[in-house]
Amino acid sequence: MDTLLELPLILFTLLTQLAVGLAVFAALRQWVTVEGPSTRTRNEWIAILALIGVGVIAAFFHLGKPLGAIRMLANLGTAWLSREILTFAIFGALAAISLYMVYTKAPNGRLLKLTALVGLLAVFTTGMAYTGKALDAINNLLPLVFFMLTVFTLGPAVAAYFVEEKAHALLTSILFPTLLASLVVRFVVPFIWLSGNAVMNATGQNFLASPLHWLHLAALLAGLFFVRSGKNIPAWLPIVLLVGELLGRIAFFVLVVNSGANLGGVY
């Protein structure tokens, strides 16, 4: 598939997952420590809302007929894409209310938790929506796993910009194992694909031959190297991880082979 054609979805999924990640860690911080409203948390919620906004706008460009986007809610019965739109709409609304609350009064812990939970649910629907039945390599739980790893990588990493340094310990305690898990999963999966059917095998080969994949792994490795429990997150690291996830996401959208491309060949 054409990279340019997929760019809107690459941005949509990545930015919304970053937003959910931030929301989750905002809620988490509320839960484990009492954090009052501050400029930083305000900025964080502005960022969350902005990321959702930019992501959704980007997604519009994916559509052949953007004006029909509202109709995407039409098939909640069977289409994960419809459910995804709905949950993101709710998540967006909750994020807006959360921002309002953060601005006006003390943040409501329950609301933040609810927002984070709905955000995770939204990522879950995204994960389900991208298990294309034509995409043998990811017609499984892998999209969900990949997306959740992105949430728990980018969430704590980028949250570092919005919290005081003393809170970094909380972030790294989650970021480190996530990075480790992500590296292992992402390293191993292409090799597993190689042993699958022809379509999966071709996908595995595409990944192993692609600089996108290896640069993604390199970013994760860099993260593992520089993130230490209890230590601060260097200011450049979230950028590296973000770029790494972006490359990985491009790979996810352009390197996975469609079963229909192999008609007449051995499956």
């Binding site: 052949g64 289409a79 894409l81 294309g132 039945k133 034509a134 469609n258 079963s259 008609l263």
Partner: peptide, 10 residues
Amino acid sequence: RNCLRNCPFG
């Protein structure tokens, strides 16, 4: 184009 991702027969 979700159907393109879902139809194994192209």
